[in-house]
Write a protein that binds this DNA or RNA. Structure first.
Lengths: 359, 359
DNA sequence: ACATTTAATGCTAACGTTTGCACAAAAAAA
DNA sequence: TTTTTTTGTGCAAACGTTAGCATTAAATGT
């Protein structure tokens, strides 16, 4: 009883495979199959638990119902959340998701795209590494649906979903300013990624508007999760005098940043304020809780799946919409005003009262 | 130039598709194709950038080179790390990975397995929800390779990779005891998962050995990531008198736990010690850094992929090895002895000196 | 009675590969 | 020569479906 095929049914019922196919695909009416035969086929299929294999269907129709998700690092908090949500959203559509981390490596990404194309995936959702424009264009000209997200790519006509990184970043800094911070450092990645440039620009704009000094440290992409990063951040923060808040351009940098602050014995909420671009449960659970710029993961995924699936259904294959979603600044304890006295070098009792709203 | 098929080559070179297939699969020798013809075909294929489609190959050979990864929640730190590593490890083997979260929901998992079987995936890597034994057995009897991990399933002959949850848990508690803690609470999930039972038993064994009281709080599976969990943990911790350390049975509970501690104004390292089952960067970055039982993600994934791929290659399809890997207790600041004076209700200056090893 | 429409179903060629076997030509053996 | 072996290659079936067109039988129209 390994596997019942449409042919077996045909033989058993002494009818043609075509008729069965029609009935099973709900085209009985259209093809004017008699009710009695339809019932008979349906009954037989049910009774024998017929399960159509997708492989031959794919071969015949050209659709695999598999899409490919490519992000910098699937293990990263933000991208893992995206992955989970996308799978949830595509499941009701009968679409499966294969994934792969690009490591922000152009050459690797190129190979991956080729691999997945050979695998005949129906479409791509990509958070693109720099320099991949050509390959994306090739996909488009081969009419394979692609939706980009997270990082904008210049001069390319394809659907994109993202947030306004510049504005969000600017808002976050303005928030710090309004809370009384006057020397906000910005720790970012030294990479070509468009969204990073936007976040930096937002920071600079806010600095310009408020007259605050521009205090930027770029961490090399390769060393972003290493002890070297921790040390560099610590050195930077202590080398500039007067820093009273730090804004981290990405979640993983924030982790290194926390270690740097520990190294310096700077207490968040007492010696220094903190804001992070990208939210997660960890920042909420931290004591003091940490203010973050939250990307709307859910809306983002919904937009991605929407865009992709309308393009998958072929009809309006030319949707090249760009969707920019608002972020939400989740204000927590770490961006509350510092206590008046501010003796940077002397740790003292934690100043944060329990009355601050938690969460 | 949409797609060059083997047929096109056959036509262009005026030879049969069979010959081409042989040559392209390196069977030229075996099939005694002449050197000159072989070269000609190879050259033509290269020059015209021939890319064989995998779909018909799969149909013909029955292999899709896709495996399915099913875990409770792909967005969870631990599972996301697993997902990333597995993809890395299978890539050189030409294997792609589709994933889906089970939400620890038996019925959903059942449907997912059926879906993926129809999709003709070559094998499964599953962190199984309770009650899924039957479906796993069906996979085995249908000769579809499966490897289970993370949670043991009773009475089932299939490869499994995991850690010794009981022993690891016991060790962690013994560590706390040795550090001077005498009232260690254990916060776990109220679920049927085998590994959770093992962790609880390990805790109990350690309590027995040391004469410490058994202080267990089970959080309902559904509410594990909700404010309700935070509140329950807080209530529990404050209801029992004398608790001086908390051991969390899983990473996500630890997050709720941190919030609970904040609610109570208990300072880790001062009022209370803390250990978490499952490590992540966040625990390292936290101040004070938090001691954790680290599962060897990399070794775990290597074992999974090894086991699965030997079973994929059909030959020795009967490997049903169980592999238990050692965990590593990563000792950090949160399990250092508390300062002698221990006024639980009065927050005071942070007692943790910077000299403690960071990391 | 004959032609035409309509209803009900079947035939068969795809989809792009792989693979067992057949076959022809050339070389070797008889 | 004739037969056998070797060498090189092609044929065609198969994998399990789908879909365009063909076919048959019954019903309707003239």
């Amino acid at each position: 009883m390994s596997k019942l095929s449409i042919k077996d049914i045909a033989k058993a019922l002494n009818i043609s495979t075509a008729t069965i196919s029609y009935v099973l695909n709900g085209k009985a009416r259209e093809m004017r199959i008699s009710d009695s035969l339809e019932k008979k086929i349906l009954k037989f299929a049910r009774d024998n638990n017929y399960q159509p294999r997708k492989l031959p269907i794919s071969l015949r129709t050209g659709r695999t119902d598999i899409i490919c998700l490519m992000v910098e690092d699937i293990a990263d908090n933000f991208f893992a959340a995206i992955a989970g949500r996308i799978a949830e959203l595509t499941r009701p559509l009968g679409i499966k998701v294969v994934y792969m981390s690009t490591d922000n490596d152009t050459e690797k990404t190129r190979e991956l795209i080729a691999d997945f194309r050979r695998q005949n995936v129906d479409g791509f959702i990509i958070s693109p590494p720099p320099g991949i424009e050509r390959d994306i264009r090739q996909l488009i000209s081969d009419e394979i649906p692609v939706v980009l997200f997270d990082r904008p790519l210049k001069n390319i006509r394809t659907p994109y979903v993202g947030v306004d990184n510049g504005k969000s970043s600017e808002n976050a800094v303005m928030h710090l300013y309004n809370q009384g911070f006057r020397h906000v450092a910005f720790i970012t990645l030294d990479s070509d990624q468009g969204q990073m440039a936007d976040r930096l620009n937002g920071y600079k704009r806010a600095a310009g508007r408020t007259g605050m000094p521009v205090l930027v440290k770029k961490i090399g992409f390769a060393e972003r999760d290493t002890p070297a990063a921790v040390e560099k951040i610590a050195r930077f923060l202590s080398s500039k005098s007067g820093i009273d808040a730090v804004f981290f351009a990405t979640g993983s940098l924030a982790l290194s940043g926390l270690e740097a602050l520990r190294l310096l014995s700077w207490k968040i909420g007492h010696d220094v304020g903190m804001v992070v671009f990208d939210d997660n449960n960890f920042l909420r659970a931290h004591s003091p809780s940490i203010t973050a710029v939250a990307q709307p993961v859910n809306e983002l995924c919904e937009a991605l799946v929407n865009l992709l699936s309308t393009n998958l259904t072929g009809k309006s294959n030319k949707k090249t919409e760009k969707i920019i979603l608002p972020t939400k600044l989740v204000v927590r304890q770490s961006s509350m005003p510092l206590p008046a006295a501010n003796p940077v070098t002397t740790p003292a009792a934690a100043p944060i009262a329990a009355k601050h709203k938690i969460g």
